[in-house]
C-alpha cells in the first residue's frame, strides 16, 4: 500500500497494562478480554490520514517483562513515536514510568514523540492513579497524555493519531531530516513535504488531525 509517510512506533510499559490490546483495538477494532502475553516483540500496521496524506503506522509491540528488555530495546532505534502505557488500576505500573522513560531517552532518538497512556479507563471504579497524576507526570516530562480504554475503544484512535499528528507537525517544522531513516520516518511515493502532495488515497482510515 502506498503512503506519503511511514512512521515507526514502539509500544512500551509494564507487563499486563494492555499494550497488545491497545494495538489490537487500533488495528482490528476489536477487544480481546484476555490477550496472550507477548513474548519478545510483535507487530501491527495501519493506514491513517493526516492533512489529507496517507500515513502508514508501523507499530512494534514489546514484551513488558524486565527480562526481555535487552531485546525490546533494540526496537527503540529508529522509532518516531512511542506509546508509554500504564494501567490506571495498578499503581506499580505508574510508579515504573520513570524507569521506562529513562530507558526510552537513552535508547531512542531525542526527537521521538512520546504519548503517555493511562489504560483501562473503563475500570474507573478500581482506579489507583488519578487523572491529575497522569497529567502531572506527562507535563513534567514533556509527554502528550491521554487516558484510554482498549476495551471500550475510548481514545484509542486519538492516542495513535495524535501522536502521528505531532510527528507530522515536527516534519512540517523541519525538526527531522526525513531522508535519514534513523528518525523512524520514511517518505513514500508522493510524500514530499509541501502543499497537498498526497498522490493517491489508499488510506483506509480517516483520522482526526493534530493539535
Amino acid at each position: 500500500m502506498s503512503y506519503a509517510y511511514l512512521f515507526k512506533y514502539i509500544i512500551i510499559g509494564d507487563t499486563g497494562v494492555g499494550k497488545s490490546c491497545l494495538l489490537l483495538q487500533f488495528t482490528d477494532k476489536r477487544f480481546q478480554p484476555v490477550h496472550d502475553l507477548t513474548i519478545g516483540v510483535e507487530f501491527g500496521a495501519r493506514m491513517i490520514t493526516i492533512d489529507n496524506k496517507p500515513i502508514k503506522l508501523q507499530i512494534w509491540d514489546t514484551a513488558g517483562q524486565e527480562s526481555f528488555r535487552s531485546i525490546t530495546r533494540s526496537y527503540y532505534r529508529g522509532a518516531a513515536g512511542a506509546l508509554l502505557v500504564y494501567d490506571i488500576t495498578r499503581r506499580e505500573t505508574f510508579n515504573h514510568l520513570a524507569s521506562w522513560l529513562e530507558d526510552a531517552r537513552q535508547h531512542a532518538n531525542a526527537n521521538m514523540t512520546i504519548m503517555l497512556i493511562g489504560n483501562k479507563s473503563d475500570l474507573a471504579h478500581r482506579r489507583a492513579v488519578s487523572t491529575e497524576e497522569g497529567e502531572q507526570f506527562a507535563k513534567e516530562n514533556g509527554l502528550i497524555f491521554m487516558e484510554a480504554s482498549a476495551k471500550t475503544a475510548q481514545n484509542v484512535e486519538e492516542a495513535f493519531i495524535n501522536t502521528a499528528g505531532t510527528i507530522y507537525k515536527k516534519i512540517q517544522d523541519g525538526v527531522f531530516d526525513v531522508s535519514n531513516e534513523s528518525y523512524g520516518i520514511k517518505v513514500g511515493y508522493g510524500g514530499i513535504p509541501g502543499p497537498s502532495g498526497g498522490k493517491d488515497g489508499s488510506a483506509s482510515q480517516a483520522g482526526g488531525c493534530c493539535s
Binding site: I39, G40, V41, I71, S74
Partner: peptide
C-alpha cells in the same frame, strides 16, 4: 533473527 524468539521460547 529476533523475529523467531517466540517460536523458540514457547
Amino acid at each position: 533473527y529476533l523475529f523467531a524468539i517466540r517460536m523458540l521460547m514457547v
